[in-house]
Write a protein that binds this DNA or RNA. Structure first.
Lengths: 226, 226
DNA sequence: CGTTAGCTTGACAGAAGTCAATTACGGTGG
DNA sequence: CCACCGTAATTGACTTCTGTCAAGCTAACG
C-alpha cells in the first residue's frame, strides 16, 4: 500500500536506489514549476515542500504541504499542474518519469501504488475543501496546526511551523491579518502557546480539535450544516 | 488518454460491454454511500450525479458534479470516501472493481488511463479549492454557471441548472440566501437571464468569466492576490 | 383552489478584508 | 558587542461581505 509509503519512506522499493538520485534543494528554491514538463516525481527525504498554483490574476493558493517521507508530483500528466517549492533546506529523491513508466510496464504493483497515492492525495484535497469551505478563520488555523503537528512531528505538542504567516494565509484562504488574529485568539484562550512566532505548543488539544471539527461553538460557518 | 474518456463516452474499450451492465438510477437515489466497500466504478451514460461528503457535524459539502460521459468512483481504496447521488434520472454503466483489477493485471494501458482519470479529478478538485478559497459569492456562482454550461451542454448560452439552490450552496461553500442574492445580482447586471429558476441564459459571457477569474473588480477577496 | 416546498427579499449581526500604524525580530555592518 | 535596517508579525479602526432570522413570493401538485 502506498498509504504506507507516505509514512514509511523506506518502502520505495519499486525503484532501484541508484536510479533515484538525491537532490539538495535550498530554502525557497523550486523543485519544479507549474506548466513545466512533468519529467519526474519526488520523495522528500528531509525538509518541507509547499505545493501551489497561481491564478490568472497572480493569486496564489497553496494546495498542500509535504513533509519527510511524502511524495510530490505523483500525477500522471504531460505538464505539472502546480509548482513545488522547498520552504526550508530540503533533500528529495528524484524518480524519473521514464523509470515510473518502466515500472508500470513491468508490474501492476507499481500502478496500484501510484493509484493509491493519488487517491490519498485526492482525499487530502477533499479534506482541505471542507476546511476552507466550511470553517471560520480560527477553525482553519486550528486544523492547520493539528495537521502540521501530526505530519511533521508525529503529533508532538510542541512543533515548528515551517511556513510564514503569509504562506499560512495562502494555505487557508485568509489574509495575513486574519491568520495573525486567529493565532492571537488561540493564544489568549490558552489553547496554544507560542514560544517563538514560528513555534507552537498545544496546551489543549481537545479544544483545538473541537474548533477544527466544529463540535464546539464558533468554528463553523452555518452554511452546510444541518 | 482518459481525458478523452471523459468527453467521449464510447472509449471505455478496456472493459467488455456485457461485463458492464447499465443501471437506471432515480432522481435523488444513491449510487453508493461514503464508507461502503468500493466494489465498482461507474460511467455516466445519461443524467447528472453529485459527489459529496458529510462532516462529523452533519455538514455536507458537494465535491463535484458529474455529467454524461464522466466517471464516478475511480479512486483506488477499500471503501468509498464520498457518496454519489443522482440528481435527476440517470443511467450509469457499472464497472466492477474485480474487472478493473483484472484489466490492470492484463495491461498497463488500463492503469495509465485510471492514473490520468485520477489526475484529472485532482486537478478539478484543485480548481474548486481556488474558487472557494479566493472568490466572493458572485465569483463562485459565476464560475459554477460557466462550469455547468461547458460540461453539461457543451458551452451553450442557455442551459439547465441540474441542482437546487441548496445544492449550489453546498457546492460553493455559501448559504442558500447568498447564492440567491448573487444570482439576482448577476441578473440585474444583465450578465445572465433566468427564463425559469432552474434555467440560465448567459447574456455576457466575458463579464461572467471576468467575475469567475477576477480580472474585474469585486469577484476576488483580496487575500491571495498580489 | 389550497398546500407545500423552493426561491427570493429584507433587516440585522457577526466575520473577515482593507488600510494604516506599531512592534518584534534577524541580519548586517560599524 | 551594539546600533541600525528591513522584513515579518501584530494590533487597531473601519468597511464590506456573508450568515442569520424572518417574511413574502412563486410555482408545482394534489
Amino acid at each position: 500500500m502506498i498509504a504506507s509509503l507516505s509514512t514509511h519512506p523506506a518502502s520505495h522499493s519499486a525503484f532501484s536506489s541508484h536510479a533515484t538520485p538525491l537532490t539538495r534543494v535550498g530554502s525557497h528554491e523550486h523543485i519544479f514549476h507549474e506548466g513545466a514538463p512533468a519529467e519526474a516525481m519526488f520523495m522528500i527525504v528531509n525538509g518541507v515542500v509547499v505545493i501551489y498554483r497561481t491564478g490568472i490574476d497572480g493569486c496564489r493558493i497553496i494546495q498542500d504541504l509535504r513533509f519527510k517521507g511524502e511524495y510530490v508530483g505523483v500525477g500522471y500528466e504531460e505538464n505539472y499542474s502546480f509548482s513545488a517549492i522547498a520552504v526550508r533546506p530540503t533533500v528529495v529523491r528524484r524518480i524519473a518519469r521514464a523509470a515510473v513508466e518502466r515500472a508500470i510496464d513491468e508490474s501492476p504493483v507499481t500502478a496500484r501504488r501510484l493509484l493509491e497515492a493519488l487517491t490519498l492525495e485526492q482525499s487530502r484535497l477533499s479534506d482541505r475543501l471542507m476546511v476552507i469551505g466550511s470553517r471560520t478563520a480560527i477553525g482553519r488555523v486550528a486544523a492547520c496546526f493539528l495537521d502540521i503537528s501530526s505530519r511533521s512531528s508525529g503529533g508532538a505538542e510542541t512543533f515548528m511551523v515551517p511556513i510564514s504567516r503569509s504562506e499560512m494565509a495562502d494555505y487557508l484562504g485568509l489574509t495575513i491579518e486574519t491568520v495573525s488574529r486567529a493565532i492571537t485568539r488561540l493564544r489568549t484562550l490558552g489553547i496554544i502557546a507560542l514560544p517563538r512566532s514560528d513555534t507552537v505548543t498545544i496546551r489543549d488539544r481537545a479544544a483545538l480539535q473541537a474548533l477544527a471539527q466544529d463540535d464546539g461553538d464558533g468554528a463553523a460557518r452555518g452554511r452546510f450544516c444541518a
